[in-house]
Design a protein around this nucleic acid. Structure first.
Lengths: 153, 153
DNA sequence: ACTATATAGTTTGATATCAAACCACATGGA
DNA sequence: TCCATGTGGTTTGATATCAAACTATATAGT
């Protein structure tokens, strides 16, 4: 019986180490982002503004909650904070009386722009320690892992 | 003036996407872990037990807090929870009256073992969608990124 | 047409985490 | 020796998040 290329025991440890590194990077990058974001935006709040610009606004809260892997209660909270800051507008859905639609305000677009501008200088001196080529190289693998985790959840 | 290999604008977007994927993976894997951990262990609590086995116990809370990138207040909380569950013991430090030392109890070791056993079946069917070779391939890059973020913080 | 079930959004209570203030002890310099 | 500064651990108040319960509306099956 030929042995597997890697022992099953070490395979577990490998995945373990992988998830650990990823968790630490997520934590470090989150606190880095948090430090520089303007308007007291949280990562989640900025993420929502960013999402609305990239993929278009008019989404329902439920769909946004699903997209961000967050409970509807959490999304309610995030939307209320953003609305209080005047960065989004939440309209009733004319087709479904239960539902709502989320739209960016001009101030919301500006806040997202300002966030990107604030993040740029931080990311600017990253290539010295971590070249963009390397980022591009590992990105597909990460997407593959993310997709697998997303579907087998 | 020769152009850079990638436009600076796209470089920012690339890093952005990278951190986004990593954040999502961290979130998905965390909730996966959380679901299967025994004894109502949180990720942080399990992480501490795991750390004590791998790197040895007897660390001070301050050093543990630094290792896990959390505040000392957070570490105080985590240690109190673990002590209440009987998984660690916190002794005074004979050399420094301000300080303490954290030790695993036999029950703590068992809880860590049980956690690994509970996680194994989850990780077992990961290779189908994400081969271990790929994990091994991207791990060094992730370590490099983590180290850079860690030092430039 | 009615009823049962599913979905959208909110609210409530709990928890992990953080930042900042606080106290106790340590350490180095005058 | 004494004081200033630094460090270790805890506490407090705030916040983002979750799970679960709740209300209102939609949809499908009979």
């Amino acid at each position: 019986m030929p042995p597997k290329p890697t022992k099953p025991d070490e395979t577990g440890a490998l995945y373990f180490q992988l998830f650990n590194e990823i968790a630490i990077i997520a934590q470090l990058s989150a606190s880095l982002f948090q430090r520089v974001l303007p308007h007291d935006l949280t990562i989640a709040q900025f993420g929502l503004l960013h999402h609305c610009v990239r993929l278009g606004d008019g989404w329902t809260p439920a769909r946004l909650a699903a997209a961000f892997q967050v409970t509807r209660g959490t999304m309610t909270n995030t939307l209320q904070k953003l609305e209080a800051k005047g960065f989004i507008r939440v309209d009733p859905d004319s087709d479904d009386a239960r539902s709502k639609r989320v739209f960016l305000t001009p101030a919301g677009r500006q806040a997202r722009e300002a966030s990107l501008k604030a993040l740029a200088p931080e990311l600017a001196h990253l290539p010295a320690g971590f070249p963009p080529e390397l980022a591009a190289e590992i990105l597909p693998a990460l997407q593959q892992l993310r997709i697998w985790l997303d579907t087998h959840r």
